[in-house]
Design a protein around this nucleic acid. Structure first.
Lengths: 342, 342
DNA sequence: GCCGTTTTGATAAACGAACACATTTAAAGA
DNA sequence: TCTTTAAATGTGTTCGTTTATCAAAACGGC
């Protein structure tokens, strides 16, 4: 064979063996329409034989495309990250892209230059950006200025439809309100993440509105911003549940905080779900194993990430993505378990 | 300025502005020792000003090095994966590498060709391989044949010292045995992952030997292989704890299984830690929040991954890594909590 | 002022593919 | 048969670095 074990085959090898010019091979590789089917087949056969794969580097240099997609995130829940990566990789695999992960702290000063430099340095073709960084508007202004394609994952339609995949948290919260109504809860409390976070705003707005439609409102002192951690939530829940007036239902913006609520209730002798309903968010693997098991909202992270990636690839116009795959909105699903079962 | 917003600066721009040849700039970029400190400083200043970053693609093409490191894993615990990624990225950042993630199923037929193709396709410089794939010997034979640098994370020294970073699970189990002895446990049971997994073998051997040294042995029926899931472990624990003879201490090979044990004990009215000690592995975020909180072995995943990456980078001989950073062995730490506190 | 190091430079050839442009080939029309 | 036209294929340059090969400065010591 000549070209084999030592150093992978090049386009020239393929061309030589197929008896055509490398330009034609290139056409086959890039799915150019103007290639004789016979020729294409012949070349594809040689490619398979040689186990040839075009060098991403060389392609990148020549076409200024790297076939690399960057994922920018700020240390979210490990489980969420895991699902998101899976979704992205799933979409990438179909189109020959690879995923480069790039965690950043969303409040660091040089987030924007750093991300731009990352893209420039590695010639990243496009970015998928997770919350909360997906809410840092100036970053996206910068990306647009530098014409760097991106798609954000967010809790709200914060951008052109082709640049965002949203989890409709409001609709999700409506399900929660409906559940609370059905269980005849009169006094709902909500434990949020940091106030400025979009997710917090949306979930709060969603619950407030949904309750309002049902003629209920949330007491101001039952609206508590936290930091998504168990520890803070535990303190807040302790305070909430040992007050004069106690809520009879609590929505916590993630499962960690919901678990804190359940512990707090346990400590204070409040029975879940008899005296208090608890609903979380994320469907942490532990949620189903708690005792009582935790009702929670499950956001389809993997599907969302996949959709986002397909949109990005579409935007890179390398390949045509099935329209059906370009979903823009998902709604978290309410998984009802024991913590609301009464 | 000339060169700016439109199209990143090139090495030529830097050379021009610094008033040197591009050869010298190249020397600076590649840390060649034979550059006058003054010159180097001057060039570095220009590089900073221009916000210049050498094209990874071009570098790669020319030097057949991509500055990409691949992480091969088989869907492990999301939390473990997260720590590992953090560790790798931490090391990568120092030397200008990026991380490309590549999950694979470790029992899939074409694992080896697939990984080779991944490396070839993306010109990955080297691989970090996590368990359980790190135990698939034929893969490493293939990598060696194709002279693809790799470092494995494993529970045992399965390779040349420069190609593996080990978590000394035996030593870790010795701590567990010591704890059991101290708490005067007489009848220890062990819940393992799949039998063929190296981690299972090492943990089993470690506990067995450590107990033997203390004059104890494990009843054959107290050695139970599982699949690392809560569900299976729950069934096994139920059986174990409702038997004629019951263990007074159980080591579970991960926290999920340990939680199953605690639930099983709860269901059967067995008090933890009074009647039964439980020890897990992983230090899942939930471990410290369980009631009682769970004693567990914490493997320093992040540090291990970082060490592995530094070894890999060292092997790529791009940069000299501090010897002090090239640690080869880590021992999981025993975090004692309520589940063994009596 | 001579010699041996260090530094630095000029030149040019890779690296492996993409693509603008040119050319050949084949089919269709007249 | 001779154009005309479209389809298929080829030529040659380009992308931004690295690196080899010499060579020429610059520098310091004696």
């Amino acid at each position: 064979m000549g070209k084999d074990s030592k150093g992978a085959a090049t386009i020239n090898d393929v061309a030589r063996l197929a008896g055509v010019s490398k330009r034609t091979v290139s056409r086959v590789i890039n799915n150019s329409p103007k290639v004789n089917p016979d020729t294409r087949e012949k070349i594809e056969k040689i490619i398979a034989e040689l186990n040839y794969a075009p060098s991403k580097q060389a392609r990148g240099l020549a076409s200024s495309r790297s076939y690399l997609i960057g994922l920018v995130y700020d240390e979210p829940n490990a489980i969420v990250l895991h699902s998101v990566q899976r979704g992205i990789l799933n979409a990438c695999a179909k189109f020959g892209f690879e995923l480069v992960v790039h965690p950043r702290s969303y409040h660091e000063d040089d987030l924007i230059p750093e991300v731009l430099s990352f893209v420039a340095r590695s010639k990243i073709d496009g970015l998928i950006v997770m919350p909360p960084i997906s809410a840092v508007e100036p970053l996206f202004e910068a990306l647009r200025e530098n014409t760097i394609p991106y798609v954000r994952l967010a809790a709200k339609a914060v951008d052109r439809p082709e640049a965002v995949v949203v989890s409709n948290d409001r609709k999700a919260m409506d399900q929660v309100a409906q559940l609370f109504e059905q269980k005849q809860c009169k006094d709902v409390a909500i434990l949020l993440g940091p106030e400025h976070r979009l997710a917090s705003k949306e979930r709060f707005a969603g619950l407030t509105e949904a309750l309002a439609q049902r003629g209920q409102k949330i007491r101001p002192e039952f609206i508590i911003a936290g930091d998504f951690t168990y520890e803070t939530a535990k303190q807040n829940a302790d305070r909430l549940l040992s007050g004069e007036v106690k809520p009879d239902a609590i929505f916590a913006s993630n499962d960690q905080m919901a678990i804190a609520v359940m512990h707090s209730a346990e400590d204070l002798g409040i029975k879940v779900p008899q005296d208090l309903l608890v609903v979380g968010y994320d469907d942490d693997p532990m949620a189903s194993r708690l005792r009582p098991s935790l009702t929670t909202l499950k956001r389809p992270n993997e599907d969302m990430a996949k959709a986002a990636t397909l949109k990005l690839i579409q935007a890179l116009s390398v390949e045509t993505v099935e329209d059906a795959d370009l979903v823009s909105e998902f709604t978290p699903e309410l998984l009802q378990r024991q913590s609301t079962d009464r």
